[in-house]
Amino acid sequence: MKITDVITHQLLVNVDEPFTSSRGWYYKTKGALVVEIVTDEGIVGWGDCYGPAAVNRAIVETVLRAAVIGRDPFDVEVIWEELYNKVKDYGMTGMNISAISGIDIALWDIIGKACGKPVHKLIGGAFRTELQAYATGLYFRDMNRLVEDAVEEAQGYVEQGFGAIKMKIGLGSIHKDLERVAAVRDAIGPRVQLMVDANHCFTVPQAINIGRELEKLDVHWFEEPISPEDVDGYVEVSRRLDMAIAGGENEFTKFSFRHILEKRAMDIVQPDVCAAGGITECKKIATLAQAHSVQCVPHAWGTAIGLAATMHFLASLPNCPPCLVPVHPMLEYEQTFNPFRDELSTTRLTHTRGIVTVPTGPGLGIEIDREVLRKYRVA
C-alpha cells in the first residue's frame, strides 16, 4: 500500500454567541484543519490538527505533504521520525508538531481500516470500553450574569448525567472567581467532581493563594494555574497545594513532557493527541507519565476526528495507579458550539448520562460526512 495524496480541508464557521476564557480571546469564528490521506488501495485516513487552521494547512501542504506521498502508511513510526527531523530546525514545538499530529492520526486510521481493527487494538488494546466524560464549559459570556450563567449551565450538565464538570476561572479578581466557583459547587452538590481551568493567567503567589481557597471547595484539579513556560513555578505551586495540578495542553512531544515529569511539576499531564504529536507520540508521553507515576488525562478540543482519536488513546491507557478501585482517566467533552464535532461524523460520539462508548469500527471507527466537509470548507 502506498500513499498517493494528502488533502487538506480548512473549515470555518461563525459563532453567534462569543465566549472567552481568562486569556481574553473572544471566539467569533471557529476553525479546524482536517487532513485526508489517500492510498492506492482506496483506503482513506482522516486526521485533525490543533490550532490555527490556515497555519497548519500551510505546513502540511508546503513542508510535509511531499515527504509523505509514496510512503507505506504502515511505516507510521518511521514517517513520524522523518517528519519531525524535517521540521525541527524551524521549531521543535508548536504548529509544526500540530501539523504532524494530523498526519499521524490519519495514518493510524488507514492502518486500522486495512487490518479491520479499531485503533485501540493496534496500540495495545482497551483497558476500558466506556469512558467517563467530563463537561468542559462555563466560559465567560455575559459579564453581568457571570455567576447566574455558570450555575444554570452547571445544573444543566448535572441533569444530563455528567459526574464531572470543568469551569473557567481568571476574572482578574480572586474574590469574583471564588464567588463563582462556590456558587457552582453549591448548585451541583458534593458528589459531582469539579475542576477549574485558569488558562495560565495567574502568577505563582496568586495561584497558591486562590488554590488554598479552591481546596476548601473540593476542587478535583487546578488546570493551568500559571504560564506553561514556568516549569519551576509549577513545581512550587504543586508543592504548596494539596489538590492536583494539571497542565500540558501547550506542550509538544515526549521531549517537552520529559522535562515536566522529571521535575514532577504537575500531578496530571494533559497532552492533546491533535497537537502533541499524534497517537504515536502521545503513547510515548503516556508511558513516560506512567514511569513517573503521574496520571495522563488528555486535553481534547477539535473535530469528531480528534475526539475519536482521543477516545482510542484513552482506552489504551493503563490505570494509574493500578488498584482494586482504579481512577480511570476521563474524557474531556467540551460543550461549546462545534459543528465539526457534532456533524462531521455520521457515527455519533455522544454521551449517555456522562458515559461515552469507545468506537469499535475499523480505524478511528467513524465515517466522515463529505457534505458537511463541503459545507464548512474554506475555498
Rank of each mutant, 00 (worst) to 15 (best):
G102M: 07
L107Y: 09
D48E: 12
V358C: 09
I188A: 05
I305C: 07
E153G: 04
T129P: 08
R145D: 13
A304C: 15
G124L: 11
F337I: 10
E249D: 11
I43S: 05
T280R: 04
A291T: 13
G277A: 12
T360V: 14
R191D: 14
E82T: 15
W108L: 06
V63P: 06
A53C: 15
V147E: 06
E77F: 13
A99Y: 00
W46K: 01
V269W: 01
E281G: 05
G45H: 08
D197V: 00
C320F: 07
V219L: 06
Q132C: 10
D230T: 05
I103N: 00
P271W: 00
A182T: 10
V44W: 06
Y90N: 15
P18Y: 09
K375Q: 15
I208M: 00
H312A: 06
G211W: 00
I368C: 04
R258G: 11
N250I: 00
V151L: 07
E215K: 07
N209W: 08
H299G: 05
S101T: 07
R180N: 07
T280Y: 01
L317C: 01
Q290H: 13
D48L: 09
L194A: 03
T357G: 03
G277Q: 04
G172I: 11
A207I: 02
T93M: 12
E249Y: 01
D232F: 05
P359Q: 07
E371G: 15
V6F: 03
E332H: 09
D342K: 10
V119S: 03
Y376V: 04
G277K: 01
P118N: 05
D104E: 10
K2T: 12
